[in-house]
Design a protein around this nucleic acid. Structure first.
Lengths: 243, 243
DNA sequence: CGTTAGTTTGAAGAGGCTCAAGCGAGGTGG
DNA sequence: CCACCTCGCTTGAGCCTCTTCAAACTAACG
């Protein structure tokens, strides 16, 4: 651990860029471009800025959920662990996205930095306090939870119905939709192969072979292990579950 | 379709029994024994009671979500379909549970009757209206969404990490926890093998074989195809993900 | 008592997993 | 500056689980 920089060419997006967010569900117009951000901005004075190096834990499953987090820079994985040590990555999170919003007292998963991560965190009870006067907060929180719910349902469909290549295609397309694509069609992939495997319910070897196959059929190219070019979107979309 | 009765020995529970509900998460005390029910009861005059025969559709994915449903009797499956016709059953629902609560304009999945089902439905905008005066409604809706979210996360873990026997064990234990167990340790299983398969991301044959294996190792018995006896709970729990 | 829908079992095949080794890029120390 | 080491990625071979296809069985119903 703590071994420096990791990948991700350049984190172009900053905390003020997140209005472009549009996830999930592609088709439906974004219901709320997360109005929650405005409320958090109003809590600036309570905001705490923190940095985490690769593989450091931002918060852990079971910990008291006293603060909510906004990712300013870097990428994060959300993990759940089984009793016998198996790991599943529920989702990845990117700049401008909110983290650790629960209705429980404790966090339901562990959040770990994929690379150098900067987060701002805010006391949860402050937001609740605003919510007591401004009913919009409640509905924005609900919208946030609902988005997450839709994302989970989509992912259930992926794990329940798709084979390795299809899962990878779904993953890459969603990643492209969320993080955007650099000039030259370059897609930066912050997470390692093992992370992708644990997210898609496969092994690292199967991920590698699925990538090789997609390359062989001309659907993607990989200039290096952490960058992809989606050379044939229609083919990928045909594999994936929906866009 | 419409071939009469289906299974499920006797639906003992009625609309007034749901206070016993305690899902998901076993450990945590039920955060809200769904206070939403009280609000719905207050909307009695707008309530619409409907019956559905086995395999009939209660509402379909993509339809306008104008009403929310409460199951009075019977069991329901919630399905999503991929473009190429594959089916995934997101979850099953039982008497006393609420159905079709979305933040969207349209339903995110299809609800179909597993057996003879009776539901009460209420206009969504009426509940919203109550919510404008009573802030508790909003937080109860949020709690409801959050419960669903936790359930999905649990199920992701099942699909992402477990093999056939483990998935079946997880499924049976959760089912027992939700629907309760008859005298004699009998667990009524309203859904067919194909439904279980589509819920667990397996084929019907694999389900049958997993059942056979659990029987062989003495963990369950099956007096008939729609009843199970969980003869060795510790063994099942050891297989399952958490309780 | 035949029909039908659903369940169960078998045999063969495929996709993904395991184990093992090779490769390549980055960082470190001489 | 190069050699070395390490970590993560990639590839291969064999195995195992789950799937596929096919057929037999069972129970409910007309």
């Amino acid at each position: 651990m703590r071994q420096g920089f990791g990948y991700m060419t350049i984190a172009l997006r900053t905390a003020d860029t997140f209005s472009a967010k549009c996830e999930p569900g592609a088709s439906r117009g974004t219901p709320h471009p997360s109005g929650l951000h405005e409320h958090l901005d109003r809590l600036r004075s309570f905001g705490l800025r923190q940095s985490f190096a690769r593989n450091e834990t931002i918060f852990a499953e079971g910990e008291d959920a006293k603060r909510i987090y906004r990712i300013v820079e870097g990428a994060v994985r959300l993990c759940k662990h089984t009793a016998d040590g198996r790991r599943h990555i529920v989702d990845f999170m990117f700049p401008g996205e909110l983290l650790g919003i629960v209705e429980d007292d404790e966090h339901g998963f562990t959040a770990e930095a994929l690379n150098n991560v900067v987060v701002e965190s805010f006391p949860r009870n402050r937001l609740d306090q605003i919510g007591r006067f401004d009913p919009a907060v409640g509905s924005q929180l609900r919208a946030h939870l609902y988005e997450n719910l839709l994302t989970m349902q989509m992912h259930l469909l992926v794990l329940g119905c798709q084979d390795a290549k299809e899962r990878l295609a779904s993953f890459l397309l969603r990643l492209a939709r969320r993080t955007g694509i650099q000039r030259g069609g370059l897609l930066d992939v912050a997470m390692g192969r093992q992370d992708i495997a644990d997210h898609l319910g496969l092994t690292i070897e199967t991920i590698c072979r699925a990538i090789r196959d997609l390359k062989a059929q001309g659907s993607v190219a990989t200039p290096n292990a952490h960058q992809f070019v989606l050379t044939n979107m229609p083919a990928l979309r045909a594999l994936a579950i929906a866009n």
